[in-house]
């Protein structure tokens, strides 16, 4: 081709130019709206910063050591980990099942998809109010069902051991539609020919699922895993609108602690220190998830 040679010359420079211009808007936006605030937050974490008086007193690493020694903060970390361990696998599992169920356009799949997305679309205020009633310790829907089955009524949001799992159920209900969507967009990228060939060879549905679908969804799964993990660690609004960390701090997730310290106890420095600790944990978590899935890839 006559253009090939001059094209090769320009390629490297063209690549760099394109790289710079096309990533510039996002780069600047992230710098201004993400990194500068984060750096400020890091700065706050080294001070005893009272919001109301505006007084800032240098304390060095004291906020961090206090946070790591504070039983309430440690409890919050533990609660958040528990939430994460319950929430993420359920979201992945149900998201996958639902997406497989509605993948092929059949009678009713459009309707089913919309229904599953309703919770995503419903405002959190309404969702938490309604679930509050369904969870009501005496007359809620779930307790009515339990009582019909001659089982004792439960205080879903008022009992220490049940509050967090109840919030997990609410969280999964609310977000599974979105996870289903992500899986769907990953599934549509799998060429149907692969399934055709496998079916001709006599492979069953499950065999195809395990050997074709799942491997090809690897990238999507990593993405969903990281998306839901970070979401689980950052959960705040459902807790804020229902239990506010109770009963007995069994739902005191870490962001609730940050919020309480920053805006209720007016200790901005301490709250910032906790946030940085959370960030470090999340970075570690993502790296681990990334590397472990990468390793499995190289084994294949």
């Amino acid at each position: 081709m006559k253009n090939l040679n001059c094209f090769q010359d320009k390629t490297k420079r063209s690549v760099y130019l394109h790289a710079i211009f096309m990533s510039l808007p996002a780069f600047i936006a992230i710098l201004i709206f993400n990194y500068i605030p984060i750096l400020q937050a890091i700065r706050y974490s080294f001070y005893d910063y009272n919001i109301i008086s505006g007084r800032m007193r240098w304390v060095g690493l004291a906020n961090y050591t206090d946070a790591l020694k504070d039983p309430f903060v440690l409890n919050s970390f533990w609660v958040t980990v528990k939430y994460f361990l319950m929430n993420v696998p359920l979201l992945l599992l149900f998201g996958l099942i639902l997406s497989l169920a509605v993948e092929k356009p059949r009678f009713g799949t459009g309707f089913l998809r919309s229904i599953i997305l309703l919770p995503v679309v419903t405002s959190l205020v309404v969702a938490t109010t309604i679930w509050g009633f369904m969870y009501h310790p005496s007359n809620g829907l779930f307790n009515s069902i339990l009582q019909t089955l001659k089982l004792p009524p439960q205080g879903f949001l008022t009992t220490e051991k049940l509050a967090l799992p109840s919030l997990v159920v609410l969280g999964v209900w609310k977000d599974v539609g979105l996870v289903m969507l992500f899986f769907l967009s990953g599934l549509t990228a799998i060429p149907y020919e692969l399934h055709e060939v496998a079916m001709l060879d006599g492979a069953s549905y499950f065999k195809r699922l395990i050997h074709i679908t799942l491997p090809m969804l690897r990238g999507t799964i990593i993405f969903i895993l990281i998306f839901t993990s970070i979401g689980a660690f950052r959960v705040f609004t459902p807790v804020y609108m229902t239990t506010k960390g109770g009963p007995l701090r069994s739902t005191q997730v870490i962001v609730m602690s940050i919020y309480d310290n920053a805006f209720r106890y007016n200790q901005m420095g301490f709250a910032s220190a906790i946030s940085i600790l959370v960030a470090l944990i999340l970075i570690g978590l993502s790296v681990i998830q990334f590397l472990s899935v990468r390793e499995r890839k190289s084994k294949n």
Partner: peptide
């Protein structure tokens, strides 16, 4: 990727200042 790691609630005040 690192920007995902810091919870938004911690950034409210400095972001507002920006």
């Amino acid at each position: 990727l690192a920007t995902l790691m810091v919870p938004f609630e911690a950034r409210i005040v400095p972001l507002y200042l920006v």
